[in-house]
Write a protein that binds this DNA or RNA. Structure first.
Lengths: 162, 162
DNA sequence: TATTGTTATACTCTATAACTATA
DNA sequence: TATAGTTATAGAGTATAACAATA
């Protein structure tokens, strides 16, 4: 793909800007995480697992906003890399509880470090005011909790999105 | 249909925020443009054609940052809707010059209005300071030309406003 | 009957490779 | 040889539908 500077007619369209910002970040993310053997979405799965105990596949999927069928493939991949493990819930044998392995926890730590560095580089063109403002604006637009307090977050019941 | 608030562990990850902001905008865009019979990407093609004369398919593709093979399908679709027309360039018969039809120009005007309204609604949760800052930050991150001092959608078309 | 995980399948979006017609 | 458009194809990424096990 040729990466021209976008023409002015596109430069104030939110759709264009969000899409291309996301694409650029995804590239940088892949580059930064490649040596850790995971991609940004897999890292997000690990981070969710680290932040909550005893999550079923469906609950993880709910937190990430993805479908349970998509989740199967993620867990397959991460289990293949020995970063997570499935075990049947004794309370409800329909559920797979997904847990980080020790290796997974270690990988998460290292990859998170790389991700933070990547994000810092990515935002480097912005003044610190603008960077803060960007993140706050995106949190507001996505309904994300702002860092003031812990989210009263309902336990992952919710719908995957389109 | 209810969308969970993202858990705190994801709410400060740029990848998550950009992706989900983009997904939400895409939904709103589709809803706003549905009655006009086009989607946001098709509208962007029309806007590029309106802003530049005598563009070949390849040149349009370059401005939009998409592949020429992808462009073929866009032009096929838009030509099927009688919004654009192809004609062979007399100077270089390998090239297809793509032009808006009168219908296409009219559709562009109406759909642009709907898009602007949609973006205004989308940004409504933000203070005008934050909205401005968001757009400026995204322009900076994508290498888009900034039109200095321009408020997002304050007037307009999100298009060229010199 | 409803829910969880799974599989098979399909659909969207986009790119790569190969073909054609021009240059 | 190189370029513009086209076609065929493939590969992400994700969703829907159907099914088995379990509740």
């Amino acid at each position: 793909m040729t990466r021209d500077a976008p023409p002015e007619v596109l430069s104030s369209r939110l759709g264009y800007l969000l899409k291309h910002a996301y694409l650029r970040l995804t590239e940088e993310s892949a580059r930064a995480l490649a040596s850790h053997g995971i991609d940004g979405r897999e890292l997000a799965v690990l981070a969710v697992l680290d932040a909550h105990d005893e999550l079923s596949q469906l609950e993880v999927a709910g937190k990430l906003g993805i479908d349970r069928t998509t989740m199967v493939a993620f867990v397959d991949t991460l289990e293949g890399k020995e970063l997570v493990e499935r075990r049947r819930s004794p309370q409800d044998r329909r559920k797979n509880i997904v847990r980080l392995t020790p290796t997974g926890r270690e990988r998460l730590r290292d990859a998170e470090f790389a991700r933070q560095e990547m994000e810092r580089r990515f935002l480097a063109p912005l003044s610190s005011t603008d960077a803060t403002c960007l993140v706050r604006a995106l949190q507001s637009l996505t309904g994300a909790p702002t860092s003031a307090g812990k989210a009263p977050d309902a336990d992952g019941d919710g719908g995957p999105h389109p």
